[in-house]
């Protein structure tokens, strides 16, 4: 939806294989090797996590792995920088609540 199909200077973008992965259990699509965050943004997903203290939504901010705002739980590991982590087929990506998945965060209460 947000992909640039034809760029006046760069023309086409060399993308890997189209693969599917899971976001909070829902099947999504993206290209293997592109950052997870890019695949998510193309599908209209902007919220990567909710913060620990104020439960505020956060997403991509710097897109180069510096700010750490786009972190999510990837295959069970929290705090993974999705803007610099390449997408692989079958990845299990979860929205991060504080430092946990939604289910784990609710069990704490």
């Amino acid at each position: 939806m947000y992909r640039i199909e034809n760029h006046p200077i760069l023309h086409q973008f060399d993308k890997g294989q189209r693969v599917s992965f899971l976001l909070d259990g829902k099947e999504m699509e993206g290209f293997a090797g592109e950052p997870i965050a890019i695949a998510l943004r193309n599908s209209g997903v902007l919220v990567h996590r909710y913060t620990a203290k104020r439960a505020e939504p956060r997403g991509i901010f710097c897109a180069i792995g510096r700010c750490n705002d786009c972190v999510m739980i990837v295959d069970g590991t929290p705090n993974v920088r999705t803007c610099v982590t390449p997408l692989q087929a079958g990845m299990n990506v979860e929205t991060q609540y504080g430092i946990q998945s939604r289910g784990a965060a609710e069990n704490n209460d």
Binding site: R3, I4, E34, I38, A63
Partner: peptide
């Protein structure tokens, strides 16, 4: 810079 990375490296608006 994030905008540039997204569009010029990854081909995404």
């Amino acid at each position: 810079g994030a905008a540039q990375t997204m569009m010029n490296i990854h081909g995404l608006r």
